[in-house]
Each structure stands twice: as C-alpha cells, then as structure tokens.
Computed example of a mutant assay.
Amino acid sequence: MTNEEQQEPADGVAGGRALWEDALGMAALRALAHPLRVEIMNELSDFGPATASMLAERLGESSGATSYHLRQLAKHDIIVEDAERGSGRERWWRMAPGGVTIGSPETLDTPAGREANEIISLGWQQNNERRLSAFLRRGLDTFGFEWMESSTLSTSHLELTREQLEEFGREYYALQDRLKKKWKAQEAETDERKRVQVQFNAFPLVEQEDR
C-alpha cells in the first residue's frame, strides 16, 4: 500500500520488481504509526510543502507538537527539509522522493507490525474519504462546472484472477507514469493547474465470501 507525492509508480509490482522491497522497515513504520504523524504526512502529500506552524493551524495542534512530530518523521526519511523554501526563521518540510510504501512481509509477520500497518492504512483511507466528501460538498462552488465535468468518480466490478488483478495495477501505473511524463513537458504552456488527488481502488470484495 502506497501514499505518493507526485512520484514514480509505487504500488503492487512495477518493472518486474515487487514494490514492498521499498516498503518502510519496522522502525520507520512504528515511527509513522501515530495518528497525528499520519495526518501530517497526508497534509504534505496532498497539498505540498509546509512549515510546522502552517500544519499546526490546519490540524488544530500547537506548533511545538507538529515540529516535534516532523522531526521524528524526518529521522526515518519519510519527509525531508525543503531547503529551497526554508529561511532563517522557518523550516519547510515536504514528502521524501518516492512517497511511502507499507506492507512488507517483514512487518506483517508480527502482531506489532500488523497493528502499525493498520493504523497507517486506516489513516490514509479516512483522509481519502474526507477529501472526496469535501469535493462532493463544495467542488461545484469552488471550481465551477467545467472542473466538475472534467473530474471522474468511478466504481467498476470485474471478475479477475489474482494475476489479472496484479496486471490491472501494473497497467494503471504505467498509464499514470506515461501521462505524468507527457504533462511534465507541457508545464510551461499553462498556469491553470490545480492540485488533484487521484483515488483508485481495486480489490476483491471480502463480503463475497459470506454470500
């Protein structure tokens, strides 16, 4: 499971290499498995670089608390200091290149590791639901009809084998990678860009086993 910050594809299998090989080890996983740290990571991933005081205001925390948790995340290279934005008075932070991947066999092999993975993955999912709910409630008033018309909310149901499900993920990330490279070359052509979150889920329904 991966949370990305506009990075290369990072979920399932890419280029024939299992991505859990890049997943957080136990120490980093346990460092991230704190509700406020997951929230901080989500803010940096969703909206880009920020300072401790900016994050404190958004999350309703003290700047001392956010500063402390930022330093803990930085110790494990989950985030890095944004030297280009920093000044003598403020330190800016951003997601580390490559995003964050969790769920390695090593960490799932122990109760503590499974609990930490669950805390983080549930935090990500709750954040995704908040972002989507905000879009549904306020998207039209905020962005106008054309942006709403260009957005996509899609749910599909397929009958797949495990190998086909894995292939589906690879093809999705290959498409995303190809388009990101294409759009990167077009960056200077327009200033009408807005921050966009892509939510894509493909998984077998657990409840089907109860039917």
Rank of each mutant, 00 (worst) to 15 (best):
V80D: 00
R91Y: 06
E90N: 02
R85P: 00
T66S: 06
E90I: 12
W92M: 04
H76P: 04
A83D: 08
R71F: 08
A74I: 11
G88T: 12
A65N: 11
A74D: 06
D82A: 11
Q72W: 10
G86C: 09
A65P: 07
E84N: 02
K75E: 09
I78S: 01
Q72S: 05
S87W: 07
E84K: 08
W93E: 00
S67W: 03
G86N: 02
W92S: 02
W92F: 13
R71V: 14
G86Y: 07
A65Y: 06
D82K: 10
H76R: 11
I79W: 01
H76G: 01
T66Y: 12
E90L: 10
A83I: 14
S67N: 12
G86E: 04
L73W: 03
L73C: 10
G88Y: 01
A65R: 13
I78M: 10
V80M: 03
E84I: 09
D77V: 15
W93K: 00
T66F: 06
R89I: 05
R94Q: 15
R89L: 09
E90P: 01
A65S: 13
Y68G: 10
V80T: 04
S87A: 09
D82T: 06
E84W: 12
R71H: 12
E84T: 13
S67Y: 06
L70I: 13
G88A: 06
D77S: 15
V80Y: 00
V80F: 10
E90H: 08
W92A: 03
D82P: 05
S67T: 10
Q72D: 11
W92R: 03
I79Q: 03
H76M: 11
V80I: 15
S87E: 09
L70E: 03
E90Q: 05
R94Y: 09
D82E: 11
R91K: 11
E81W: 02
T66A: 13
S87G: 15
S67V: 01
G88I: 14
D82Y: 10
E84C: 14
I78D: 02
D77E: 15
Y68H: 07
T66L: 06
R89W: 12
K75W: 07
A83Q: 15
W92D: 01
S67F: 00
H69K: 04
